[in-house]
Design a protein around this nucleic acid. Structure first.
Lengths: 186, 186
DNA sequence: AGAATCATGTAAGGGGTTACATGATTCG
DNA sequence: CGAATCATGTAACCCCTTACATGATTCT
């Protein structure tokens, strides 16, 4: 009941995005989730896992559920965002990820939903993330400079990371261009 | 007893590298592992986890152990590679990782130990990994081309991945240069 | 008639993290 | 005298994966 939602990945919060435009039931969400051109590209799970996550989100007060009986079909458990759930979603969608290793899963998921919220949400997310990435890059370059001569493995690792972060920044730029192609930028 | 070692990460195999030059005990290995300029850069764990992994490797027949009593100190449990362990290590150190997400942890760990084995091992590892990365990149570029016009999220994801893989390739090149600076390359 | 779809889950188990246990010795 | 070092683990817990359970309906 009181187990905290994972701060690190906050992958649960992504599910809130599926409920942002109205109540849905688990099976329905799973249909959309498993679209091979959609979120499935970066986030795969079993159906049972989805049901477990929804139950967990309800435990944490971010969702409410109600059973909706049907004729000749199993009843549907409809989930809807609570006020807390909506607030959590809005905070989640604009928060940049804190570590490079979260980028692939977390940031791409955020972007998936931000695109639905409109260009402004995308802009905000990408802008925030770019700032975070620039900071990582500065820290990394400083680390490379201050690393002892002897610590060659350390330098190797830092160079690897900074290369990855640079690629992230390039990608963020290209994403933004795709969303605001008319506007002339910097 | 018969739980398989994780094929995916094979992080256990990395521990074999610590035993490649003679028997060691867990505490001793942990000292080296927790050097902040060494493997600790990419692979952190609690001491208890290390002991558990060593025990697992022994269960799988890759290590043998013997107790070595000391005066005034707790006895040491010395681990040594078995023939199977040595073979597994030799295979592990030259095998490229299969997915980009394994690169950060698995490949950097392999490189850490390959450097100790000498320039030839490094060359072999990097060469193999570069071939794998090039293949990923080809597949990704083909995926981008064949993706439907409408699947813009899909394209976004593929472009992200190809950017990351390109950065990996650049990094592999720079690593190789560092190891064979004299030789003129292609 | 058999397979797929609709719609929910439970149960078992693996792997990892965190916290705790032990108990002597040496260092400050 | 208290803290850190030496040297090993065990126990509890959490998250995730995999497999299985159910049972009507519609499609082939």
């Amino acid at each position: 009941m009181d187990s905290p939602l994972s701060e690190e990945l906050s992958s649960e919060h992504a599910l809130l995005g599926f409920l942002a435009y109205g109540p849905r039931h688990g099976y329905d969400i799973y249909q959309e989730l498993s679209d091979p051109d959609g979120l499935w590209m970066v986030w795969r799970m079993k159906q049972s896992r989805l049901y477990a996550m929804l139950a967990r989100l309800e435990d944490h007060g971010l969702l409410t559920s109600s059973m909706e009986p049907q004729e000749g079909r199993p009843p549907r458990k409809m989930y809807a965002l609570t006020a807390a759930g909506r607030a959590a979603y809005r905070a989640w969608i604009k928060t940049p990820v804190e570590h490079g290793r979260q980028f692939r899963l977390c940031l791409l998921t955020r972007l998936f939903f931000a695109r639905r919220e409109g260009p402004q949400a995308v802009e905000e997310l990408i802008g925030g993330q770019r700032a975070a990435c620039r900071e990582w890059l500065c820290d990394l370059e400083e680390s490379i400079d201050t690393a002892a001569e002897g610590a060659s493995f350390k330098r190797l690792v830092f160079r690897y990371r900074s290369g990855q972060v640079e690629a992230m920044l390039d990608w963020l730029d290209s994403c933004e261009d795709e969303f605001a192609p008319a506007e002339v930028r910097r």
